[in-house]
Design a protein around this nucleic acid. Structure first.
Length: 817
RNA sequence: GCCCCCGUAGCCCAACCGGCAGAGGCAGCCGCCUUAAAAGCGGCACAGUGUGGGUUCGAGCCCCACCGGGGGCACCA
């Protein structure tokens, strides 16, 4: 237990820093954990938000998946997030800062199979472990709003939203070639397949399967999802907005139809309609239905043989751009609508079935891929323009589109790379899709009053992936009466992608216990949208795009009025060790619990916040929790050396120290708004150093009113990062019950201005003299003073002053020659 | 190949609207304190901003090209 030199109520006047009791990390943590629990400091008040008596601030950080205990990555994101949440509370906002668990998902299911138990056992045990760790970590969460997406009370509304989306035409089922993870034995959304064709979750090579699956119509909002990024980008970290733009992949061009004798015309998408005269052949995706319907009987065996070959090639091979072109002539010709030329139609795997129309016009003169193909198969090359000469591409394209439109063979159009979101999964631990399949009535929605469709109790081996959903094995659960006709029918046995759960959790936090609606629209209006969202880069496209889609859909349903869920977004870097990602195989993992054990919560948090700007990676080898703890003790010791009483008027204190204090507060406020948390810590260190010097200076000392003012500022600033030590300091300073309830210090503008400032005198941009001047000096006076300066005059000897640039009060630059 | 971000002391990083390159820290060195050590306190040193041009009175900051690193997209027509 820490024993301060003197009690704050009864300042003893000890000035010595010797014999100071040591700061007891463990005891301090235990003491404040208990007090905080009783104080419930961070409860967000809906009544305040609804009344508008205070501005609201919705601070959100991505909720964790409950796999084991919290780790270094969690520690970083939570430490950073907490700075923002606590700061906004200080600034008078009613802060909503909730936390919960994204608790559906595969790891629990895999653990359940291995241990022969129910996934809920693993899930909820880990949640409790993480909850305890969160509490100990001293975070400013409103735990009254805690939620778990795997609770039936939560997924009831996930299911309700699915049904609402379906009513809006935003959820539908279709048969299509889909991504299949052979390891997890389930389909995946496009977003869950990495650039190298592997599963985002398990790393297995993803294959294609033809299946009927549920989709959300994300493409409905493609343009809006793109447009809104322009408004967001000032407050969103640039790389994430960029990643979303790339993912949406807008391209402008035209649809052009090529007539084919005895067949529907072939429609292509092209970004280069100006090169239509050079289209000397066409290529359709070999695996598209179009190829099969175009091919002549004579060429059909060749196409089928080619298809067999293509299917053998893995996706990874297919993704290699340097692979030689292959293909087969379909035996038909199409008419180039501009030249009237009869051009052959080929099939190849370099054309993708699910992008554009699955067919292209090939212009070998101006497209490298088409050129390769033409060279390989001896097809003609017709140049449209000289690539080395000047060519107004934009103008040529728009005039080409006009020409095509006039001829009735197509129109200008916009194509997106974004696909609809495949949301059904063939796994157990997720929200069941609330649909009943009836032989008479087809797809029937489960009536709202029958929600939630609760998962049947399955555990252990019954969850083993077998390519179809484990729910299919729960026959009693599957077989139900059709809600429409009452006849025998069957439940849909797929569950929803867990990204569905997390696409709307920030709405549920608004009214987490409401059993009449998914969330309260009035509270959404009062609190929303999220003002600050912090998370990981790995969700740049996945979670963030899906949540944006949900928000737009909810807006169009009239439940909310705003367009975007997250007004600002920041993603923190990773915690690495010795230049490498922490991993079991490398044996370089840093255990969070051990670090906290050794240095305490505050030191770990301080280390993470101070190490670098939030978005940069932190290499644990480059930082020093020991040093952080040293600094915390040093700051804490200041409080013990303050001998004045609370409430003393700081105006009587040392002005130099007061200046440092007020400048620090002023600058920190700006830095906090700009999320430069590492610099906030650096500024606080400076203030601590200056305060130490003042205390140790016999003519100032611990009784000076400015010292109290400075140390109180330190306690408030530090409470953003090291809440335990800050509370301890606040108490030593004679305040109660918690520093979190302190008011942010008011900055005295007069103290931000120094009596004199140093003006630099430059000649030709080189510093030649310095002047101590008043900060309010006029430009004319400063210029005169500079020219009168002996050192300057010496340097100007024999030269003519051509021009004098004055930037009062900091600088004079004399151009002479 | 296209797009985005970043290169500042040995290391992690500051630097406002273009205005004296250095705030904070780590590691290092030297003192003070101490019987000694630890803790604490004080001090020192270290770069001219990846490279080459340009704009400007003045460039780490703006523009162009290149080099290096990170990320996104990618046979996407």
């Amino acid at each position: 237990m820490s024993t301060p030199v003197q009690s704050p109520e009864n300042p003893s006047g000890h000035e010595s820093t010797q014999d100071v009791a040591t700061y007891d990390v463990e005891a301090t943590q235990a003491k404040w954990l208990e007090r905080w629990d009783a104080l419930d400091l961070f409860r967000a008040d809906d009544a305040v938000a609804l009344s508008g008596e205070k501005p609201t601030y919705y601070a959100l950080t991505m909720f964790p998946y409950p796999s084991g205990d919290l780790h270094m990555g969690h520690a970083e994101v939570m430490a950073l997030h907490d700075v923002v949440a606590r700061y906004k509370k200080f600034r008078g906002f009613e802060v909503l800062n909730p936390m919960g668990w994204d608790s559906f998902g595969l790891p629990a299911e895999n653990a359940a199979i291995k241990r022969d138990e129910h996934p809920a056992v693993y899930t909820y045990a880990n949640i409790e472990t993480q909850y305890d760790s969160f509490k100990k970590y001293g975070l400013a969460f409103d735990w009254n709003r805690r939620l778990h997406t795997s609770d039936p009370e939560y997924y009831r509304w996930t299911q309700w939203l699915f049904l609402k989306f379906r009513e809006q035409g935003l959820a539908y089922r279709k048969n299509s070639p889909v991504n299949w993870c052979p390891n997890d034995q389930t389909v995946l959304a496009n977003e869950q397949v990495l650039g190298d064709g592997t599963c985002e979750r398990c790393g297995a090579e993803v294959t294609k399967k033809e299946l009927t699956q549920w989709y959300f119509k994300t493409t409905h909002y493609a343009q809006e999802l793109l447009d809104c990024l322009d408004d967001l980008q000032d407050n969103w970290i640039a790389k994430v907005a960029n990643a979303q733009r790339n993912w949406i992949g807008r391209s402008e061009g035209a649809h052009v139809s090529f007539d084919v004798a005895g067949h529907e015309p072939i429609k292509v998408f092209t970004t280069r309609p100006d090169t239509l005269p050079g289209a000397t052949f066409m290529v359709v995706a070999a695996d598209a239905k179009l190829a099969a319907s175009l091919v002549t009987d004579a060429q059909r065996p060749a196409l089928e043989a080619y298809l067999d070959e293509v299917k053998k090639a893995s996706d990874i091979d297919r993704l290699a751009t340097d692979r030689p072109k292959t293909g087969v002539d379909l035996g038909v010709t199409a008419t180039n609508p501009l030249t009237g030329a009869q051009i052959p139609v080929w099939a190849s795997d370099y054309v993708l079935a699910d992008y554009g129309t699955g067919a292209i016009m090939a212009v070998p003169a101006h497209d490298e891929r088409d050129r390769e193909f033409a060279e390989k198969f001896g097809l003609p090359v017709v140049s449209v323009y000289d690539e080395d000469a000047a060519y107004d591409k934009a103008a040529e394209i728009s005039s080409a589109i006009a020409k095509i439109e006039a001829s009735g063979h197509g129109e200008g159009t916009i194509n997106y790379r974004l696909r609809d979101w495949l949301l059904s999964r063939q796994r157990y631990w997720g929200a069941p899709i609330p649909i009943i399949h009836c032989p008479v009535d087809g797809e029937v929605a489960v009536p709202e009053d029958q929600l939630p469709v609760v998962l049947p109790e399955l555990s252990g081996a019954a969850l083993k992936p077998k390519g179809t959903s484990p729910l299919g094995g729960a026959t009693e659960w599957v077989n139900v009466a059709c809600p429409t006709c009452g006849g025998p029918a069957q439940r849909d046995t797929d569950t929803m992608d867990t990204f569905v759960d997390s696409s709307w959790y920030f709405f549920r936090y608004l009214s987490p216990n409401d059993d009449t609606q998914a969330f309260d629209p009035a509270l959404a209006e009062a609190w929303g949208p999220v003002d600050f969202y912090l998370g990981g880069d790995e969700h740049a496209v996945l979670h963030l795009l899906y949540s944006r889609f949900f928000t737009k859909a909810l807006r169009d349903m009239g439940l909310i009025t705003w367009d975007e869920p997250f007004s600002s977004y920041l993603s923190q870097g990773k915690v690495i060790n010795n230049g490498k990602k922490m991993s079991k195989s490398l044996g370089n993992g840093i255990n969070l619990g051990e670090q906290i054990e050794k240095f305490g919560v505050d030191a770990v948090r301080l280390t993470l916040v101070f190490a670098s700007p939030p978005e940069d990676n932190i290499d644990w080898a480059d930082v020093s929790p020991e040093a952080s703890l040293k600094f915390i003790k040093r700051a804490w010791r200041l409080a013990g050396d303050v001998t004045s009483s609370p409430g003393i008027d700081p105006a009587s204190g040392d002005v130099a120290l007061r200046r440092v204090t007020h400048k620090t507060i002023h600058e920190c406020a700006d830095l906090l708004e700009r999320h430069r948390f590492n610099v906030v810590v650096a500024r606080t260190m400076e203030l601590v150093n200056a305060t130490r010097k003042a205390i140790d200076n016999p003519s100032i000392g611990g009784a000076d009113a400015a010292v109290r003012e400075a140390v109180e500022a330190v306690a408030i600033l530090l409470s953003l990062v090291t809440p335990y030590a800050a509370e301890e300091m606040w108490e030593l300073l004679g305040h109660a019950p918690s520093v979190a309830q302190a008011a942010w210090p008011t900055v005295d503008e007069a103290l931000l201005v120094d009596d004199t400032v140093t003006a630099v005198v430059q000649i030709q941009g080189k510093v030649r003299g310095r002047l101590e001047v008043s900060p309010s000096i006029s430009e004319a006076d400063l210029e005169a003073a500079a020219l009168a300066d002996p050192a300057v005059q010496r340097a100007l000897e024999g030269k003519t002053v051509r021009k004098v640039i004055v930037r009062a009060p900091k600088l004079v630059n004399i151009v002479a020659g």
